[in-house]
């Protein structure tokens, strides 16, 4: 199972267990079964914020905490097989554009979904629209986390 950025960020939110108990439970269950898997895009999105804060000299401790957490996650990318994952992402993009009506993913959503699919992982997301659009183009490995 690969966690979408929105799942990771909500899971890391203070009070996540009470705000979104189902999400908290799902991620904990995933962690009992295997390392938490995230896309390099998610790592990039999280880390760049911490690095910016460190450069502003206001977030060294936060960056340390972020680095430790990310270090224990298993980050997956699209570069395997001489970039075969990128080709897979391009196919997803084209399929979405050719759908009637046309589907436009944000680049981050597209690349994270492609990463999950490329590694044969189920994408766990909090974004109902994304899940719906992915299903519309025949992307079956997606699981929507209920907002409860």
């Amino acid at each position: 199972m690969l966690l979408d950025t929105n799942v990771v960020s909500e899971f890391l939110h203070r009070g996540a267990a009470t705000r979104f108990p189902k999400l908290d439970q799902l991620v904990r269950e995933a962690l009992e079964a295997e390392d938490l898997k995230i896309a390099f895009i998610t790592q990039f999105e999280l880390l760049r914020l911490g690095l910016k804060q460190e450069l502003q000299q206001q977030g060294r401790r936060k960056l340390v905490a972020l680095r430790k957490f990310l270090d224990r996650c298993s980050a997956l990318g699209l570069d395997d097989g001489a970039g075969a994952g990128w080709n897979h992402a391009a196919e997803l993009w084209a399929k979405a554009r050719m759908h009637k009506p046309s589907i436009v993913f944000s680049e981050a959503d597209l690349l994270i979904a492609a990463t999950a699919s490329f590694h044969h992982e189920t994408l766990l997301t909090f974004d109902a629209g994304l899940a719906q659009n992915l299903e519309a183009i025949g992307f079956e490995q997606v699981m929507l986390v209920p907002r409860e």
């Binding site: 899971f11 890391l12 936060k62 430790k68 957490f69």
Partner: peptide
């Protein structure tokens, strides 16, 4: 991993 997640929730 869980311990570091808790730490991030704090900071």
């Amino acid at each position: 991993t869980m311990r570091y997640a808790q730490r991030l929730r704090e900071v």
